[in-house]
Design a protein around this nucleic acid. Structure first.
Length: 305
DNA sequence: GGCAGTCAAGTACGC
DNA sequence: GCGTACTTGACTGCC
């Protein structure tokens, strides 16, 4: 079990998600912004390596407008060496990496334009990971999408769109249960059809479920990740008190987290903490998980499997 | 320097 | 059919 947090670090004083308004696009602005974002990602990786936080979600905003027609700058060529160097650092330090396209990426949309923009976004994100030289265990996670008034038909559209994806995307794509529309049971149903690995979001599952205990879920989860996919990824969060159901906690609920750890101790997976204070909670999680035989905080502890 | 309004992209839902 | 919520950090214009 590697532990990590998504996208940004609140204590090192830089952001890997800097962007700018579409109206102020220029090649220079894009080049400078990407250079700053990559420099910050470099700092985040160094920070995480020094603290044993070996699971990191890379922000989708690393290259602003990467898939927008306005983007004419050849950023892949320009930054090829930088991406390769960052990837080398990840491999040397035993990192697991993921990416998570946001709400606009929908493989089951009935609109062909939205579908082609979604595929372009998946191509961009997988290209970043490929340029970093990261293996198939590095994943891009998406939700199943919208319901569009007919869930069965919408799941069927996902299957059809998935089958037409390039191998480069298929090798990395995994699906995650959400808290409103598609449960982990729905993800498993798609898994049966197309063999895609399932990411388990424990917090979403607590909100949307069919009463399945984790004892039923985890064996199916593990079975959905084949050897080149690595061990499963799991997202964890808890409810922010006083906010609407599904609002992620600002700070870690230590009791809830310890209950999660002990309730899942039979299974190994990499754990993404979706808590708003980011690295702070992740560092607390490392401390709370000390002594858990699953925990890995240094590359030499990597399992010999 | 600080604040409030706004931002590429989509869907669901209430009125 | 239309406006708003969702989620959310960062940019931008205005004071």
């Amino acid at each position: 079990m590697r532990i990590g947090y998504p996208c940004i670090n609140r204590s090192i004083g830089c952001s890997p998600s800097r962007t700018f308004r579409l109206a102020s696009y220029s090649d220079e602005r894009l080049r400078d912004t990407v250079a700053a974002n990559l420099a910050c990602l470099d700092r985040i990786l160094a920070y995480n390596a020094s603290r044993g936080l070996l699971f990191l979600r890379i922000t989708s905003d690393l290259v602003p407008f990467a898939t927008h027609p306005v983007c004419t700058f050849a950023w892949m060529e320009h930054f090829a060496e930088t991406f390769a160097r960052l990837g080398e650092f990840c491999r040397d330090n035993g990192f697991r990496i993921s990416m998570h396209p946001d709400q606009f990426v929908l493989l089951n949309t009935p609109d062909p334009d939205i579908l082609s923009r979604s595929i372009a976004e998946l191509e961009y994100q997988t290209a970043v990971l490929d340029m970093m030289g990261l293996d198939r265990a590095v994943k891009v996670q998406i939700h199943i999408g919208g319901v569009y008034g007919d869930k069965a038909a919408s799941m069927e559209r996902f299957v059809e769109a998935y089958r037409r994806l390039s191998p480069a995307i298929k090798n990395r794509l995994v699906i995650e249960n959400d808290e409103r529309l598609y449960s982990v049971a729905d993800c498993f149903a798609l898994r049966e059809r197309i063999g895609i690995p399932v990411i388990f979001d424990a917090f979403h599952h607590a909100i949307l479920n069919h009463g399945e205990p984790v004892q039923e879920i985890f064996p199916r989860l593990l079975a959905s990740w084949k050897r080149p996919d690595g061990i499963p990824m799991v997202d964890y969060s808890s409810q922010e008190p006083g906010k609407r159901t599904g609002a992620h906690a600002e700070t870690m609920d230590r009791q809830d987290f310890q209950a999660f750890l002990s309730g899942t101790r039979s299974w190994d997976f990499d754990l993404m903490l979706e808590i708003k204070d980011k690295e702070r909670s992740a560092e607390q999680a490392i401390a709370l998980a000390r002594g858990d035989p699953r925990l890995i905080t240094r590359p030499e502890e990597k399992r010999r499997s």
